[in-house]
């Protein structure tokens, strides 16, 4: 009885993901992971992440891939923070860009994005630079995985055992259609 609300929430999440993830081409999985990386690379509670979340929910990308991208990028974000700090500070202190920052930090709503913080700006710029190459790389990787590893996995006993278990329910979210 005590676990009933938690169970309902989990079921709701499962249903949401299952509903939203109606298809998953390599491009969609790669896009999801590349976009999801922003949640791990940049400080989570930022306005730009809210905007990207809306985009993720509205556009046909694989939601579990977004979560995987986020999960993988979190430790990377912590490790790369000093670099982001330097990139951001360099950009904020570039005299030529000063009018841009002055305009951004004095514009309603956009000012709430904290783009005048070195880590927020540095990490966001780093992600923007990396997102497209990352997408291409991941799309190639997923396609290769489906053509080689997944075909071999299907013939393994262990895989079949796992497939019969609950763990497979989660894994199938990544399975090729």
């Amino acid at each position: 009885m005590f676990y009933q609300p938690m169970y309902m929430i989990l079921k709701l999440i499962q249903k949401l993901i299952a509903t939203l993830n109606s298809d998953g081409t390599p491009g969609q999985v790669a896009a999801g992971m590349a976009i999801g990386a922003v949640f791990g690379l940049t400080p989570l509670l930022s306005l730009h992440n809210l905007v990207i979340l809306v985009v993720v929910l509205l556009v046909q990308v694989t939601i579990p891939a977004v979560m995987l991208g986020w999960f993988v990028a979190v430790p990377l974000g912590f490790v790369l923070d000093p670099l982001f700090d330097q990139i951001g500070l360099r950009l904020l202190e570039t005299l030529a860009l000063s009018p841009v920052w002055t305009s951004i930090t004095n514009t309603p709503v956009i000012a709430l994005a904290n783009l005048n913080n070195s880590v927020v700006l540095g990490s966001l710029v780093a992600w923007l630079i990396a997102v497209f190459p990352l997408y291409l790389l991941l799309r190639w990787g997923v396609a290769r995985y489906r053509a080689t590893v997944y075909a071999r996995l299907q013939r393994m006993k262990l895989y079949r055992a796992v497939k019969a278990s609950k763990v497979y329910n989660f894994y199938r979210l990544f399975r090729p259609e």
Partner: peptide
């Protein structure tokens, strides 16, 4: 002139927040 302040406290690095005062604002 732009001013530098320590960024907000958070688990991640706080960084530096630079404010850009704008005349007539």
């Amino acid at each position: 002139n732009p001013r530098r302040y320590p960024g907000p406290k958070r688990p991640r690095r706080a960084g530096v927040t630079v404010t850009f005062p704008k005349r007539n604002a």
